Simulated assay, not measured.
Amino acid sequence: MKKQTKKLAAVLAGLAVVVLAGQADGVRTYISEIREGPGTQNAFDMFKEATGEDALLEAIRKKAEETKVPPINARVDRVWKAIPGYNGLEIDVEATYRKALGGSLNTKLSYVYRETKPEIGLEDLGAHPIYRGNPEKPMVSFMINVAWGNEYIKPMLDTLDAEKVKATFFLDGSWLSKNAELAKEIQKRGHEMSNHAYSHPDMSRLSAERARQEIAKTEELLKQTLGVDNQWFAPPSGDFNQKTVEIASSMGLKTVLWTLDTVDWRKPSPDAVVHKISQKVEAGTLILMHPTASASGALKGMIDSIRAKGLTLGTVSETLSSNRVAKASVE
């Protein structure tokens, strides 16, 4: 009995030295020894009585304070207008502590992390256009506006599939009404489907009623044809005014434009498109393209150049959300 007590005392002393010295990674070795020895039920209670505090918990709290990444609020920028917020990241102290005491035993403490929401989100900013994601979020989106160019859609879908990339397709309503099966194919491949008005008008030239009809008609088609609950409106040709943004907002839609334009309708060479994107793309960039020969030919090269910068590709919804994303590894 005396030997067991001495062994436990030695282990507890070792634990105190390790934790109080701030070396949290070594704590679990001592916990393991406590558990495998006699008096397992009361060993940690004895330690707390001896030290006057739970040193493991304090070590986790200290690490949490040292490593905390605060969230970034959404804001309205003078140039870029509405910019989404970005979640913070911190150690979940309680979950980490419970895991340390009750989980599998290692020689290294395994921290549990959680995201923390900003106080101000995109939805709190009011009716403003959006041109980009948060510059701290290493994600990029392809915005593919579709009103014509059917012959290039499937080749582009095949490239996106091969590269495991999901894009957001903004559909012209009149195109959708005539190409429901092709739209369903795009959707079947896992891409996001959104609103590009009905007849490709200059939205700023329309009356309020006509502008509402243009958006509403396509929104109804998206719902009826594809079962889509949409949240984005991309004005044709990027033409809009504040009235357009407010009308879309009243219908539950945020107006989204682009950060970087491939200008593929001018028929540049695929190499020229890739060069432009590789030079200018950065975290939060929304890249505009259409189903054209230029975009189709450049798509693989664009994906490669984006990934070479450690950026991840996602849908517009993913890029404009406040959810965190890890920086992609660069091979």
Score class of each variant (00 low, 15 high):
V18F: 07
F44R: 05
P135T: 06
T319P: 01
A328W: 08
L182N: 00
D271F: 11
E181I: 02
I130S: 09
S322E: 14
R205A: 13
P71L: 11
M203T: 01
L8M: 08
R324S: 09
Q231M: 09
A162G: 06
A197F: 00
V19G: 10
T29C: 08
S322Q: 13
E90K: 14
L257F: 03
P38E: 15
P71M: 11
V256Y: 11
V76Q: 03
G238E: 00
L57P: 00
K117F: 12
S104F: 02
I303N: 10
Y111R: 08
R78H: 07
E119D: 15
W265G: 04
V273Y: 07
G284D: 04
S174K: 14
G238W: 05
G126H: 06
E219S: 15
T116Y: 10
F169E: 09
G284E: 05
I120P: 02
W175R: 10
L221E: 09
I83T: 10
T107C: 06
P236C: 03
P155D: 06
D54A: 04
S199P: 01
S204C: 00
T244C: 13
M46F: 09
P270F: 07
T244G: 14
S329A: 15
D202G: 01
L206V: 06
D261S: 03
L125V: 03
T5C: 02
L286H: 01
G85H: 07
V325Y: 08
I247G: 15
V19F: 06
A82I: 02
R114H: 11
S294P: 04
E53M: 15
N145F: 09
H196K: 03
R212E: 15
S237D: 03
A21Q: 10
L20M: 12
A298P: 02
S207E: 08
T116F: 11
A21V: 00
K62R: 13
R114I: 11
L122F: 02
K276Y: 12
S278Y: 06
A147R: 12
V273P: 01
T319K: 05
D161P: 00
E220I: 03
I91N: 07
A16E: 15
E90S: 10
Q187S: 13
T262D: 04
D304M: 08
S104R: 12
A74H: 04
D77C: 08
A298N: 05
M156A: 04
T319A: 10
P235D: 03
